[in-house]
């Protein structure tokens, strides 16, 4: 049986390491996962070099350097199934805020010698570079969804990651709507499910870290946010955080003026 175990690799691009940490945060499941799957390449957790092909690759992070744009091609060639994990890999992440600004200016704010920094003008999703077989949303991803994706691969079924809105999860959780009851601005109506409606459960509005749901109606939500007192700049910013380069959020942010507007 052990000869037949699928080989798994975990790859990092520009990211905070949080989504791959989710795998190590599966305290109850980790050793069982390691029984069922050959974790063959996972530099955050083990010393081992890249060798041959992998049945499944989990890819964290976005493409932000010329070197990484090449590297993702190699990862794709080595991988039968490629799954992106998290907002960086599926939408460019928070570092995609550079896409709306001059990256050389950004580099000069942070570094004494911007010329030493070899970076692309944009931070882009993995799917902008290679074919992606499955995308797991979230900043960070949900541990439960990660375990489900791994289990579904082993069972040969489709992962259960519904594309409906956070609002649906709020109803399932039995939360009182923070926007209706308290007038708290909330991105729940346009945000992809997966977190279990976490923020409304803690008396705050959703801030969209799972990115857009399927067929979101962001302009309609924005009208409501404006009625609740948010000005155009605040509305532009609320769509412009961890999934700023996801199409529906990017469009809605741009409709309300410059992203992350600075003097």
């Amino acid at each position: 049986m052990s000869a037949k175990k699928p080989r798994l690799a975990v790859w990092k691009f520009a990211s905070c390491d949080g989504c791959q940490l989710s795998l190590l945060d599966c305290e109850d499941e980790l050793l069982a996962i390691a029984e069922a799957i050959d974790i063959a390449y996972f530099p955050e957790a083990m010393r081992a070099g890249v060798r041959g092909a992998y049945d499944v690759s989990l890819v964290e992070g976005s493409v932000t350097t010329p070197h990484d744009a090449q590297r993702i091609q190699d990862v794709r060639r080595r991988s039968k199934i490629l799954i992106t994990i998290g907002a960086c890999a599926t939408a460019g992440g928070i570092q995609a805020l550079r896409n709306f600004r001059d990256v050389r200016e950004f580099a000069s704010i942070v570094y004494a010698h911007p010329a030493y920094i070899d970076t692309l003008a944009t931070s882009t999703a993995i799917a902008d570079h290679v074919k992606v077989d499955f995308e797991l949303r979230g900043c960070p991803i949900s541990k439960a969804q990660l375990v489900d994706v791994v289990a579904s691969l082993l069972a040969g079924r489709k992962p259960a990651t519904p594309a409906h809105s956070t609002c649906i999860e709020c109803k399932i959780a039995g939360n009182v709507c923070v926007m209706v009851a308290h007038g708290t601005p909330c991105l729940g109506p346009v945000t992809h499910a997966g977190c279990g409606a976490l923020c409304p459960s803690y008396d705050r509005g959703c801030y969209g870290c799972y990115g857009p749901k399927e067929t979101p109606n962001a302009p309609s939500l924005s009208s409501r946010l404006a009625e609740l007192g948010m000005d155009a700049g605040a509305i532009a910013r609320v769509y412009s955080t961890f999934n700023s380069n996801a199409e529906a959020f990017r469009q809605e942010s741009e409709r309300h003026g410059a992203q992350n507007d600075q003097d």
């Binding site: 350097t65 570092q95 805020l97 950004f106 580099a107 704010i109």
Partner: peptide, 21 residues
């Protein structure tokens, strides 16, 4: 590790947003 430029894109954000970013 590729740079992500946090100190640059924090400029112009509202104080309330900083701890999430």
């Amino acid at each position: 590790e590729p740079p992500r430029f946090f100190e640059a894109f924090l400029r112009g954000r509202a104080g309330m947003e900083v701890s999430d970013i």
